[in-house]
């Protein structure tokens, strides 16, 4: 039963952050990445973290949910942290483990890199948590539409994303059903080694692809019958409009970048 699956991790709530224009939110994400990379020392991360904390508070997204975005990355995080810790160069020995010596400079840099990655993920999570996928797609389409001049298919890309969002729950439900049906015929998706398991997926994947293609054909026909003929001459039900809050948020981001630059210089 995948009935209630929410795609991505959108957390529906009424908040100023949710209400921001998606175009602005995407720009803010890009700018926050700039800020993170401009941070030249650990001290410069403090305002970035403060900004994130404030944004999270204003968005009413539970902190736990935000942190959960890091879970899939925990191995990479630990791995790169350890790798950096042992292999980065430095002068001041801090701790001798016998097989390796940990240097102070290496420790600081490792923490720096790890923090950078964590913040990058948290800022992107905040965007997807506070912006419905459709809205996000809308924002992306508008932002990228000037690129049409160089034949970048902004509209087509957005349409593809919308359709994907619409059909993922349907296909998940279908996958569940096919899996059950094959299980009823004695298929085993759970045991055996990797190769055996990969092979066991064939009876699931073939029907799923066949069905996806059938759906795609049907949908193309239905879209054509409803006069779809690309992005040209198309109007939109929803028009995005920047409001006061959007500019305020942009101002706050500018301030943040200034702080980061300043703190990076001072140290």
């Amino acid at each position: 039963m995948f009935d209630n699956i929410t795609l991505g991790q959108y957390y529906p709530a009424q908040s100023v952050v949710h209400a921001l224009d998606p175009r602005m939110k995407i720009c803010l994400l890009v700018l926050s990445i700039v800020a993170i990379f401009l941070a030249g020392n650990l001290l410069a991360f403090v305002p970035v973290m403060a900004f994130l904390a404030l944004a999270c508070k204003m968005s009413r997204v539970p902190v736990k949910l935000l942190i959960r975005g890091l879970k899939p990355l925990r191995f990479i995080l630990v791995f790169t942290f350890l790798l950096n810790l042992f292999f980065l160069q430095g002068e001041t020995p801090l701790l001798n483990l016998g097989f390796a010596v940990i240097k102070k400079e290496a420790l600081i840099l490792s923490v720096h890199y790890a923090l950078r990655l964590v913040l990058l993920v948290l800022f992107s999570s905040l965007l997807t948590l506070t912006t419905a996928p459709v809205t996000l797609t809308d924002g992306l389409e508008r932002l990228l539409s000037p690129l049409r001049v160089i034949h970048f298919p902004a509209h087509e890309m957005a349409m593809m994303m919308t359709i994907a969002l619409r059909f993922i729950p349907t296909l998940l439900e279908e996958a569940d059903k096919i899996m059950k049906a094959q299980t009823a015929r004695g298929a085993d998706f759970e045991s055996g080694n990797l190769i055996k398991r990969a092979k066991a997926m064939v009876p699931l994947l073939v029907p799923l692809f066949v069905s996806a293609f059938r759906r795609a054909g049907d949908l193309a026909m239905a879209m054509e019958a409803r006069c779809y003929h690309g992005g040209e001459g198309r109007t939109r039900l929803r028009v995005l409009k920047m409001a006061k809050n959007d500019y305020l948020a942009l101002g706050a981001m500018g301030l943040l970048i200034a702080c980061v630059v300043l703190l990076s210089r001072v140290y």
């Binding site: 279908e174 059903k177 096919i178 059950k180 049906a181 094959q182 299980t183 009823a184 015929r185 004695g186 064939v202 009876p203 073939v206 029907p207 066949v210 069905s211």
Partner: peptide
Amino acid sequence: KKEVRRKVGLVFQYPEHQLFE
């Protein structure tokens, strides 16, 4: 369980959507 599934054959709705070979 496998023996149970052998004894009780279940045919889902639109079973032709599960053909794959």
